[in-house]
Structures are given as structure tokens and as C-alpha cells.
Design a protein around this nucleic acid. Sequence first.
DNA 1: CTGAATCCAGGAAGATACTG
DNA 2: CAGTATCTTCCTGGATTCAG
Lengths: 143, 143
Amino acid sequence: MMEKHGCECCAGRSPAEPDGVKTYCPVETTLGLIGGKYKALIVWRLMEGPLRFSQLSKIVKCASPRMLTRQLRELEADGLVSRRAYAEVPVRVEYSLTRMGESIYPILAAMYRWGSGYLAEQGKSVGCAMRPPQDEPAGSSGL
Amino acid sequence: MMEKHGCECCAGRSPAEPDGVKTYCPVETTLGLIGGKYKALIVWRLMEGPLRFSQLSKIVKCASPRMLTRQLRELEADGLVSRRAYAEVPVRVEYSLTRMGESIYPILAAMYRWGSGYLAEQGKSVGCAMRPPQDEPAGSSGL
DNA sequence: CTGAATCCAGGAAGATACTG
DNA sequence: CAGTATCTTCCTGGATTCAG
């Protein structure tokens, strides 16, 4: 996934070094994980607890089933989301965050806060399907 | 730039609300600003001080002049980078961060740290043209 | 030195219809 | 309910060439 050419400058998404050892840029990696369409929103909402496919569909209203499935599959392959199917009738599938997925919350929250400030400075108004982040435990709020 | 359709769920990159008021998702906005190719690397390196076009070319080795120019122009249009041309012969152009551009550093640093942990857990090795982030002032290191 | 102009390929994403 | 299957469009980014 995301295989590119192999140059030390953009060693982000999986270049091959001359000696055959692949290296990755942490920032590009992180961006690649949550940069996909709806991914940030999906992860954000799953922070509150597991959701099933139909519930996610309502949250990410404009995503076609195909897109939603793809994003979820990628998040699953990347180890941020886990999928659990229940053998019931009708079928029930629940998506939840892995511990790795949960651990990315501070970054999303930081982006939310910084983005809000940026938008304010640009004279634009905030409005999205995410809910504002909870205040962090004292000490990290200074980010 | 980045005009899309207009749905409250993906109200990230500039949807039009029914009443004509555009709203934006802070997280999508932030991702849009640094998500472009080489943008994170460019901003990261400019943290250390202004750089001219040729210097950036050496840092972002695999970027063609066209791409580098485009990324820089977008960063400039978004208010993160400022461009200064000196009427000399030969021409000299310096790029530097605006205050808004500098203010995004904690987010990049947080992504660097989280991404490093993620890569470690995946058994992959880190290696990129960025330099590891400096330690933050005590208190915010707990991000 | 710092780009601009042009052309092109590949992947991401949208629309629509269908299924176990 | 929770997806798949196709087809198409769009946009990002790459390669190359030329210019002030």
C-alpha cells in the first residue's frame, strides 16, 4: 500500500534504500494513515465507542457504501480499526478502534484546535461532523 | 482551492451550506494544508530558518522544480510560507515561515513522535529527510 | 537561478446497480 | 444489513522542455 519509488527525501510512504532496507518517514506515515477521505472523521467518532456500518453511514452521510468500506478496510489493514462481524440475521458488523487507533486521538485533537485557530484567523467558520475535542489533562493543553 | 460539493459530513475543504454560509472542518483543513506532497518536509525544514529555492531543491531531492514551486505556492497562498524575491543577478528567492507556519510545528512534531512509535510497532525503520523534533518544554511532552 | 508551460499516467473518489 | 461490482471522472503528481 502506497508503494512509491525510493528516494531518501520523500522516504515517507515506503522507498527502498540502496542497501535494500526500507525506511519510512514518521510524519508521512501518520499523514498517510489519517489522510484518506473520511478517515479522520471515522476515527474521531469511533473514539466514543464501537459503531456499526449503518451508523457510520449516517455519520459520513455523503460517503457511498463503497467508499466507506474502502476507508474502513484501509484503517483495518493499518491496524487502527478492528472489524467484528456477528453471525446473526440480519448481519451485524461493528467497528472499533484498536489501542493504536485510540492512541492517535491527541494528534487529531491538536489538529482540531490548531485548525480552529487557523480558520478563525482566515475569517472562516467552523462546522463539521466531528465534535470538539475534550480538554486534555492539564499539562498537555499547552500544545 | 479544494472546492468540493457541500455536505455537512465532509465539510472539510469548503462546502456550501444550504443557507450559503460556508463552514470548514478544522481537522480536514489542517490535513489539507500539510497533506500535500513534500509540504510537511518543506515546513519542517523552514523551521530552522529561511531557505532559498535551490537549497530546498537539494533537500527535497526528488521533487521536480515544477512540483516544488507548486507546493511552495500553495503554502504561500495558505499563509504558512512567505516568499521574498531579491532583485539581484542572478535572482535570489528566499522562503520562510509565517507566524502561522511556525505555529504548526507542535503538530508536526507530535506526528513525528507518534509515527515513530507506530513504525516501531510495525517493525519498520525510520528514515527521512526530516530531523527528529526537539524536546518540547516540559509539560507538553506528554502528548 | 528560479521558475513557467505542456503533456501524460495513475490513483483516489463519485455514481449507480446489484447481492449473500 | 453490510457490503460488491463496474464504470467514469477528477486530481495529484511525474517528465520534459523552455524562459526571464
